Amino acid sequence: MASQFPRRALLKTAGSATAVLAAVALSLSGCSTGPAASDADSTASASAQFPVTIEHAFGETVIEKQPTRVATVSWVNDDVALALGVVPVGMPKVEWGGNEQGSTPWKDAALEDLGASIGTDKAPAMYSEADGINFTEIAKTTPDVILAAYSGLTEEDYKKLSEIAPVVAYPELAYGTPWQDSTALIGKALGKEDEAGKLIADTESVIKEKVAEYPQIEGKTYIYGNLEPASADGVNVYTANDNRPRFLSGIGMKLAPVVEELSKGSSEFYLPWSAEKANELDSDIFVTWVPDAATTDTITADPLLGQIPAIKNGALVADSNNTLTLSISAASPLSLPWSLDEFLPQLGAAADKVK
């Protein structure tokens, strides 16, 4: 198991959900994959916005007219499209943290709301990215835009995809696009800038309301890392470039100074740390993921990892729910509201143990 999991490993390879998503979706009920008669004016207005130019890490992409066939790569991009009422013609299977359908609870809820549940005629084509970008299957969907605002595209990937359709690539860093920026970029590409702005505001409002139930979280320092006591890799910490720390900082916590310092000048989303210096990873709370509950006990009993201050104090959040880990790692306007009711209590319990 790679120590950068799930992000690196993914490169190689429900009633409550519906209720939470409905709160965000209510304001977007006017969005759809095709114009209804009552939406004629808004559709015409969206079309008038084109052509649009999207600037990104590989230059710029011009989208001549409002897309009607949308394909996506990586994670997040399909979530955003669905949250904006657009069903992709093609999207990747979720091969880590997903369900038997290669999807997630939040995706399933959104697809059902849009009348495109997996297994129905209107469902997106789903392709594997276990071996990287699936150029062949993407081309089969004949898209008129490919969304990769949050992704790890190489320049070669970008050029090959651009031969299929215009590509919305990430603005600066691979896997470094905040969910708000991904949403804004995709909204612009789809002619739904206003809807995207409202989606961002509504999602942030849902998060703020839920976080207010756990005031003990406010101001606590944290490190989000990966701990593997049985691996030579030992310890990795996620930098300020990653969406996991961004989420925690966004709800009022503070990235530990040791990681702030590591992040300076780095374009990486994680950095290795010697297990021999684990005791120097000082923070109030340490957050990680584990494959099972037994691994948590192994970590706390480890002679090196057990010396991490937060772990010594009992303030370890070790999540063994892969779907929950994915919802924070590949943060989106659909995944974050879904994650709150399970993740925030864990953070709150750890904050209660801070001395």
Rank of each mutant, 00 (worst) to 15 (best):
A2V: 13
Q4P: 05
Q4W: 14
F5V: 08
P6I: 15
A9P: 01
L11D: 13
T13Q: 14
S16V: 05
L21R: 02
A25K: 04
A25D: 10
L28C: 08
L28S: 13
S29V: 11
G30C: 10
C31G: 12
T33L: 06
G34H: 15
G34Q: 12
G34E: 12
A37H: 11
A40W: 10
D41R: 12
A44R: 13
S47V: 06
P51T: 02
I54Y: 01
E55C: 08
P67E: 01
A71D: 00
T72V: 09
S74G: 07
D78M: 10
G85W: 00
V87Q: 02
V89Q: 01
K93W: 04
W96T: 09
Q101F: 10
S103A: 11
T104Q: 08
T104V: 07
W106E: 02
W106K: 04
K107Y: 12
A109I: 03
L114N: 00
S117W: 03
K122M: 05
K122L: 04
P124T: 08
A130H: 05
G132S: 06
I133K: 03
N134E: 07
F135T: 05
F135R: 03
E137G: 08
K140E: 09
T142C: 09
P143Y: 06
V145N: 02
A148C: 10
A148M: 06
L153W: 02
E156A: 15
Y158T: 06
I164S: 02
V167M: 03
E172L: 10
Y175V: 04
Y175R: 08
Q180F: 09
T183G: 12
L185K: 07
I186D: 00
G187R: 07
L190W: 06
D194P: 05
K198T: 13
S205G: 13
V206I: 15
I207H: 13
A212S: 15
Q216G: 14
G225L: 01
L227Y: 06
E228L: 08
E228D: 14
A230Q: 14
S231M: 05
V235K: 01
T239L: 07
N241S: 09
N241T: 07
D242K: 13
L248C: 09
I251L: 12
L255I: 10
L255G: 09
V258W: 12
V258N: 14
V258R: 13
V259I: 15
V259E: 06
F269E: 06
W273D: 00
E276F: 11
A278Q: 02
E280H: 08
D284H: 12
T288F: 11
W289N: 15
V290N: 08
P291Y: 15
P291A: 15
T296K: 15
T298Y: 05
P303E: 01
L304G: 04
Q307G: 03
P309W: 03
V317F: 06
A318V: 02
D319I: 13
D319S: 12
T325E: 13
S327V: 06
I328F: 10
A331F: 04
A331G: 08
L334Y: 11
S335A: 15
L336M: 14
P337D: 07
V354S: 02
